[in-house]
Design a binder for these strands. Structure first.
Lengths: 224, 224
DNA sequence: TCCCGGCGTCAAGGTCGCGTCAGGATCGGC
DNA sequence: GCCGATCCTGACGCGACCTTGACGCCGGGA
């Protein structure tokens, strides 16, 4: 079903988790400490990480910090500590959920299902491709028919906001807010000007847009 | 920041939550029982729901079941029961997270931040499907027999209001108020005109509506 | 049978939003 | 200080959308 990386220093608990998760149809990878966890995460690309906060070498939040820059899947934190301050810190550090020990195995499985269900619909596509152009969100580069095209900062901000939601309509208020700031929510003419420039640079026929559609009165939509 | 619907029958806790959430920058709507909760959720369109499982009239999971068909935001369940079976049931019924009472206020706020953060980057598709057309509320897109159909802002506002209450009757006053504003509560001819347009665009036989039904003198009803 | 309120349909007018263009302002590099 | 790129701003025409009114149909009640 999914590959789960379990990080815990208690061999007995590790064994119990491995058996239970296997029985639930998951593939299980284990790590007894933080350093191994980071290495295993990079090597085995798990779908979800179950992370104990109390580790021998690193603090759990440190592992989380090491994971988060590149690991986009959900992280479920496990902790024996009763102080909820730790949980707060973990959640704010990027954890998706946490369970305090001792915990019920069914509850852990349910929370795991919940976080996996949430993530299952997410898109993890750093590069968007169409028949005529490609947008590499990570490299900040756009190519039309294979040749790179220069975009101004504003054009790029607008385009990335649109391609990040392929097929979805993005309201003009949202576009204005994320590109120009909350104070410009009514300056819809900005959108008209820059959408025209983007179409000129990207669309095969700017007069009849094929990818950057406008929905009158509502916003714009990128259709791949 | 966000609109939060808090459902709990304990007036004291309700008051504490209202104050704390307000202080955290949220807009707060409260409901003391399940029936009120469902009504308020439909009326005020909250971003997130904090739901106590122990309510006087309905079971919490029933409220969840009533909410989930159309409510797309996260639901955070609150429960005094220690048995984790309830939590498992709630999570599988569509809850995003749960906290057991007594709980730390900071922890609740942290979990609220966590679910709201997830929601902001998520692409969960609350999509309503019929045999002839589909309505994707998140993407703001309607397809009839697979092909996308353009709707005007007014048409969309009206349709989404109807589709969000599948099977339920929506009064003409409520429709007029939420689409055109409180000042237009008597302009029932607007509804006739736009319902006709929606039927023309969506119904297989606009003269004999199969999905968008008229309840004379009362309102309209979407039947999936 | 006639009347009447509610609904569906249609068409026409006015308004609003969008695309386009160009000129001026601003900023950064040399 | 000059120059280019980039951004902002305003004006204009056009098309789409919203509004408004009129008309016919249907069902219930007098």
């Amino acid at each position: 079903m999914s590959r789960v990386l379990v990080v815990d220093d208690d061999p007995q608990l590790l064994r119990a988790l491995r058996i239970t998760l296997r029985a639930a149809g998951h593939e299980v990878v284990v790590a007894p400490d933080g350093a191994t966890a980071l290495r295993e995460a990079a090597a085995s690309h798990p779908d979800v990480v179950v992370l104990d906060l109390g580790l021998p070498d690193l603090d759990g939040t440190e592992v989380l910090a090491g994971l988060r820059p590149w690991f986009t899947g959900p992280v479920l934190v496990l902790t024996a500590r009763t102080a909820s301050a730790d949980a707060v810190a973990a959640l704010d550090a990027g954890a998706d959920d946490y369970v305090t020990k001792p915990f019920d195995m069914d509850e852990l499985l349910a929370r795991l299902r919940a976080v996996l269900r949430r993530r299952s619909t997410e898109t993890t596509a750093p590069v968007v491709v169409t028949d005529h152009f490609t947008v590499d969100l990570a490299a900040r580069q756009v190519t039309v028919d294979g040749v790179p095209v220069r975009l101004t900062p504003t054009e790029w901000a607008l385009l990335s906001e649109l391609v990040r939601a392929p097929g979805r309509l993005v309201g003009q208020r949202q576009l204005l807010q994320s590109v120009w700031g909350p104070a410009y929510e009514t300056e819809t003419n900005y959108l008209r000007v820059y959408l025209a420039q983007l179409r000129r640079k990207l669309e095969p026929d700017p007069a009849h847009p094929r990818y950057l559609h406008t929905e009158p009165g509502m916003g714009y939509r990128f259709r791949p």
